[in-house]
Design a protein around this nucleic acid. Structure first.
Lengths: 418, 418
DNA sequence: TTGTTTTATTTCGGCGTCCAAAAAAATGTT
DNA sequence: AACATTTTTTTGGACGCCGAAATAAAACAA
């Protein structure tokens, strides 16, 4: 509401409406686009002609969806986002490895790779260049020129400063304030942004099912760490610098066990993989947090032990549930979301966690505030972060490039891509 | 971003821009409006002519602000919001009393009153009518007809459901789910909305100094209770139902002292007036919370005792600071605001509270997240709630009525008012 | 006084967008 | 082959913005 309105804004907004409708509801005929967006058929004709002229949208050849079977009248011609309009790259940085995916502008993954790349001891000065080199390698292998890539999204555990383009602090790195986005951008000449990984999961959920996840919701990632993505009024909340929703490092109990961030009593220090193991081992207060990844088998066997009734193991999961529950109760008091999504490998043990989690929410939150929130567990699939990062990059692309179009300010950018 | 754009939207948006500029920067000449809004002089002429025609804006007679001293050229004619365009009413509901203020459309208070009105034992069925009757009385005394009042805003401690127009739960009422806004609206035929009082303080701060408070900030009210107003991306965050930012009833310590909400360990149970008194009395865990107002003198003498070194009293304030500090640390981890404003009568004792509050934030939050937030204490003036409620009602008026204008959908509403 | 300069505001013509209505296109039905 | 039906395009009008030119209202200068 600080931008002045003129015909330029109108066009941009309506182009976005059309693009959003196409992204959300697959290929659509012009008349259907009109219904989705509220625009008149005449306007849809005009807008889609422009989008087609810009190479962003194309008419679908094969009527793959005979949704409306055989009907009288002129048959509809479906439109869809042109996958060849541009490419995006998603990068996920984990401890000592990065995963890269190359996608077309419809979100279809063209190629992907996982490579080892030392992070924990990485130098701040060289890390960004190493990432850029990996991306370049991936592009080369897929025969895609850098100029065809419109945007790169990077997801990382921990605190990212999306303004500065740096990793402020992450358990995957010993050092702090590591520049990434700016370096990649300079090296490859491609717009690059960095964000927290849990925020990208939230982005992906919105992309997958906007109706369900677009109000006000929180996505909790439980696994090697604990993260959160907040969706407020239908948009992922990044905060002023991109460092928001650090649920994992929200304090649960003052003076509690030591967390990887160096403070005591964070939610993560109770509910992350390493924390649960530490509790199960019996002496959580004296043990330092673990900085190395924990093999899945180790967690699975702990789960099995708890399900077999091992009191130490059961207690550890109860602690985790309590910390998560009180943390969620606090979050609900502040933001009163309508939906909480639990995701990540940690949810394998949801049966062990849930009782104490529910109890904690009951004890920590007055009924009236607790009433309107639904908690759900989504099946784990590890790709959620990469998928969400692609989704996020495409959304940015729509907003910042495609909504403008060849007549807009971004003319150069668009030409370069196409 | 779900609304389609057309010439109607353009006009609405630009009218709002003009109104916002006038609200924020006093009377302005057309040319200055152009600079503030980014619109061309030609457009400003056209828009202001419409606004004047609608009776929303008028030319200022007296050039009260010879800000630009004596200059050559055609003198500027300043425009301002026409105070006679409409009226708004602000209502603040406290324990067993309501305060009513009548204001013109520039926010100038025309009249105000405080009246006793039983709340604690009030019946859900009759309370709304009683409020409506008080408002009617106030209007009559000020010789203002109901049709001249465009909007009523109600502020209340506790949880308000702005969708349903009810007080979900408030320490001022024994009963829960008391309908107010809908009843007042039906009784008087005036649009009415209800919100939490701390949110209204936030609204007032934005109105007072938009540059300072419009990014991402949290306003904490400390007094008979503890409340919070959240400003996210320049707008007061109300949450899906209006029940957001219940900082006072965010849990601090599981199993802590009993709170008025019926749960244990809420921030309020440490930092509200009654809680501090309870700690000072020595046995906080066994004492129930107080539901009656605490006289100011009693708090002042406790402050004096603490400043004189009374260890019990000092300890009570330290407990309050610790709860507030950990609560803020948790809030910062989630939302990373750039500014935290402490307000309310409780800030009289800020010197007693601050050391433990700072310590708690240090202990509860990793450096990287704590770095970018500024904490300030604003001088207490009790009117902040009423003032903010007026401000909020005027903002709604601008958005929902004035932005449309006589040609818009709200034609009827506007005519009725003028 | 009268013309000149300066600044604010209005008027005018053009542009881009939207929309409704009419026309055209493309197919099924009889 | 004519008609019916549905989608899409074309046409003409409206509205809002803008730049440029014109006008208004003052101070200044001769």
């Amino acid at each position: 509401m600080r931008e002045k309105a003129d015909s330029d804004l109108v066009r941009r907004q309506n182009r976005r409406l059309v693009l959003d409708a196409l992204r959300q509801n697959g290929p659509l005929a012009r008349i259907e686009l009109g219904r989705h967006t509220g625009l008149s058929p005449a306007s849809i004709t005009s807008i889609s002609a422009q989008l087609i002229g810009d190479g962003i949208v194309h008419e679908v050849e094969e009527q793959l969806h005979p949704v409306v079977p055989i009907r009288r009248g002129r048959p509809l011609t479906q439109l869809d986002i042109n996958p060849k309009a541009a490419h995006v790259v998603a990068v996920k940085i984990s401890i000592d490895g990065i995963e890269i995916a190359l996608a077309d502008s419809r979100g279809g993954i063209i190629s992907r790779s996982i490579s080892r790349l030392a992070t924990y001891d990485a130098e701040a000065a060289s890390f960004g260049k190493a990432v850029a080199a990996e991306i370049a390698k991936q592009l080369k292998a897929s025969h895609v020129a850098a100029r065809q890539v419109a945007r790169i999204g990077v997801a990382v555990q921990g605190v990212a400063d999306s303004q500065a383009g740096t990793i402020v602090w992450s358990p995957a790195f010993r050092r702090r304030n590591i520049p990434v986005a700016t370096v990649v951008q300079d090296e490859l000449g491609i717009a690059c942004s960095i964000a927290n990984d849990a925020n990208m999961i939230a982005e992906g959920l919105i992309g997958t099912n906007r109706d369900r996840y677009s109000g006000t919701a929180a996505v909790v990632f439980i696994g090697y760490g604990v993260g959160m993505g907040l969706i407020l009024n239908g948009q992922v909340y990044h905060g002023p610098t991109g460092a928001a929703a650090e649920f994992g490092h929200m304090n649960h109990l003052p003076g509690g066990p030591l967390c990887r961030c160096g403070r005591r009593g964070c939610v993560e220090a109770y509910a992350a993989d390493y924390s649960i193991l530490r509790w199960a081992s019996g002496n959580a207060d004296s043990l330092p947090p673990s900085f190395t990844g924990i093999p899945e088998e180790e967690m699975r066997s702990l789960e099995a032990a708890a399900r077999d009734g091992d009191p130490q193991a059961m207690g550890a999961y109860a602690k985790a549930g309590e910390a998560l529950g009180y943390g969620l109760a606090r979050m609900i008091a502040l933001l009163s979301p309508t939906r909480i999504v639990l995701a990540g490998p940690g949810t394998r043990a949801i049966d062990l966690i849930e009782p104490s989690l529910r109890q904690a929410i009951d004890d920590g939150l007055v009924d009236e505030l607790r009433r309107n929130v639904e908690i759900e567990v989504v099946p784990i699939h590890t790709d959620m972060i990469i998928q969400g990062t692609i989704e996020g990059a495409l959304h940015q692309l729509d907003r910042e490039v495609f909504a403008y179009g060849s007549l807009g300010k971004r003319q150069v950018a668009l030409k370069d891509i196409a």
